[in-house]
Amino acid sequence: MSQRFFRLPSVRPSLAPWTYGFIVALAMWIATTAYAGLGSAGATVASALAFGAFSVVVGTGQMLVVASGPGNIDLSVPSVLTLAAYASMTVMHGSDGLILPGLAAALALGAGAGALNYLAITALRLPPIIATLAWSFVFQSLAFNFGGEATLKPPAALAGFTALQVGGLRVMPLAVMALTLVAALALRRTLFGRRLLATGQSERAADLAGVRVGRVRLLAYMLCGAAAALTGFLLSGFTGGAALNMGDAYLLESIAVVVLGGTSVAGGQANAVGIWGAALFFNLMGTMLNTFHLQAGVRFLLTGTLIILIVAIVPRPRAA
């Protein structure tokens, strides 16, 4: 017997939830430009796109997990990212010829980590939040103990690719945009996408409609792990090597960009494109607060406040 005690009058403009990320990102950009002058406008966007691309890759993986049903979340993302970065650095050993094996190693490790996550959830009946957090400690200590030579430099070609520009445009963000389009297409036009969203809405209904619910979730977690690993691989190329804390920022961010991007935490509804808006917002907000030359403490305070504020004003996708 669900009773609605009151209903807020709908005074908000009826914009799709996922557009809010883009709108607030634009606002941050305008504020930064207004403060720092027009000359920096282009550079601000370019850097937001470059850093945002990493958040988008992690977020896209997280989106698949979140969409697979209420309660599903992958908190091992940062440690998988870190571990994959170390593993691929070790495999490549700074050699251009080993880039593909390094990438393959990272992806395999990520997918494996995702499979372990799902296994713990389903076999031990742990809530995803606990299972993935527990694994994340394991992955993190593996990275810590078997990380290998942390001083290893990424292969020149990988570092070159992550910073590559053609005609003034960075290539990597464009490649990630292509990835976003692939993800959006997959959600709408592939069996996996459709079954994922069905499972996320109602596991029982999906099961009775002939969906192999377990396989769908397993694949979602594996893809999430692989996405985190890919981010680790690219990030280590971009920043000149692996570091133990390289994944830290992506715990909150991977989840926040998914939610701000218009994906329902209740599951069954996902938006790949919206993640870009949210990722740009995050990075532009960082730039803006930096430009204002605020103290670190104040910056964190404002970051938190802004996130809460914006999540609060975005209309949540309704799970009817």
Binding site: L197, A198, Q201, A205, A206, S264, G268, Q269, A319
Partner: peptide, 8 residues
């Protein structure tokens, strides 16, 4: 609970 996909 077992039939329709409510968002679809």
């Amino acid at each position: 609970t077992e039939g329709v996909f409510a968002l679809w």
